[in-house]
C-alpha cells in the first residue's frame, strides 16, 4: 500500500512551472528513485514534499494524513525526514552531538533546562546506534565541521535516521563524493532498504539501478514514467528524454 501519495502537485516560479500536475505513489518499504535531467525540478519536489517550500496546489498524503500546509518540523515529527543536496549539519557540534540532537527532537520535551544533555544516556545510545549504521562510530567525538566531505554526507544520513523516519527523502546523497566514499554510502543505503521507505534523488545511474525497487522519471516537472529499473531502461520515451544523452 502507498505510504506517500502525491496528487496534482503544482508549483510555479512566475511563468515557469517547476512542478506541473505531478502524481507520485511510494509504496511502504520500497526504495523509490527519482531521476531526471538537470532542471527537471527534483530538488524542488523534495522541498515541497518535506515542507521546506510551499506548493500552489495538490495533495500530499503521508500515511493517510494530509501534509499540505504543514511546516517542515511537523512533517518530520509525523515521520518524514530528509537530507539536503548541499550538506546541512551543525558544524560546531561534535558528530555525536549532531545525531543526539536529532534523537532529542523525537524523544519527548526539549524544554528541559537543568539536566546536563551531554550525559543523557537515552539520547547518546540511540545516536551511537545511528552512527554505527553509517559507519561513523569512530568519529563520534570529532567536530562535525572538520569531517571529510564523504563523512559529512554519511553524518547527514545518520542525522536523518536518528529522527526515526518512516519515509526518508534523500536529495543526491552521493553529490560530490569520491568513488570509495560513494561506494560506502551505497552500501549504507542498501542496508536501509526494508527498514525504512526511501525516496532517492540521484544522478549516479549505477547507484540508482543497483539500489532502486522502482524508478520514476521526472522531466519538466512531470513524472513521465514509473516502473522497475529494467522497464525504465527500456522505455523509449525515457531514453529520448534522458538516458540517451547519459
Amino acid at each position: 500500500m502507498s505510504l506517500l501519495s502525491v496528487r496534482g502537485l503544482r508549483k510555479s516560479y512566475g511563468a515557469l512551472k517547476v512542478t506541473d500536475d505531478l502524481d507520485l505513489e511510494v509504496t511502504e518499504g520500497e526504495l523509490h528513485a527519482i531521476i531526471g535531467p538537470n532542471g527537471a525540478g527534483k530538488s524542488t519536489l523534495i522541498a515541497q514534499l518535506s515542507g521546506q517550500a510551499g506548493s500552489d496546489a495538490g495533495s500530499v498524503l503521508f500515511a493517510g494524513a494530509q501534509m499540505m500546509g504543514k511546516p517542515m518540523p511537523a512533517r518530520v515529527r509525523a515521520g518524514m525526514s530528509r537530507s539536503f543536496q548541499i550538506t546541512s549539519i551543525l558544524p560546531g557540534f561534535s558528530v555525536l552531538e549532531n545525531v543526539s540532537t536529532a534523537v532529542q527532537a523525537r524523544a519527548g520535551s526539549s524544554f528541559r533546562f537543568f539536566a546536563p544533555v551531554a550525559r543523557d544516556a537515552d539520547l547518546n545510545e540511540q545516536a551511537i546506534a545511528a552512527l554505527a549504521q553509517v559507519g561513523l562510530s569512530d568519529r563520534a567525538q570529532t567536530r562535525a565541521g572538520s569531517l571529510s566531505h564523504g563523512e559529512k554526507r554519511a553524518l547527514e544520513l545518520a542525522i536523518a535516521l536518528a529522527t526515526q523516519p518512516r519515509l526518508l527523502l534523500l536529495d543526491e546523497p552521493l553529490a560530490g563524493t569520491s568513488g570509495a566514499e560513494a561506494e560506502r554510502l551505497v552500501q549504507v543505503m542498501a542496508g536501509l532498504k526494508g527498514q525504512v521507505t526511501l525516496v532517492l534523488i540521484e544522478h549516479d545511474m549505477d547507484a540508482v539501478f543497483a539500489l532502486a525497487d522502482r524508478v520514476s522519471v521526472l522531466v519538466y516537472g512531470r513524472i513521465i514514467a514509473t516502473g522497475m529499473p529494467a522497464e525504465i531502461r527500456a522505455d523509449p520515451a525515457v531514453r529520448a528524454a534522458y538516458l540517451g544523452d547519459a
Binding site: M72, S81, S110, F113, P116, T163
Partner: peptide, 24 residues
C-alpha cells in the same frame, strides 16, 4: 548545558537543519 540549551545553540549554528529534524 541542557536539552534546551542544545536546541538554542543548534538553531544558531544552522536553523534549517534544526527544522529538518523536527524543531521549531
Amino acid at each position: 548545558g541542557s536539552r534546551f540549551g542544545r536546541v538554542l545553540t543548534g538553531a544558531r549554528e544552522n536553523p534549517l537543519r534544526m527544522q529538518a529534524v523536527g524543531f521549531t
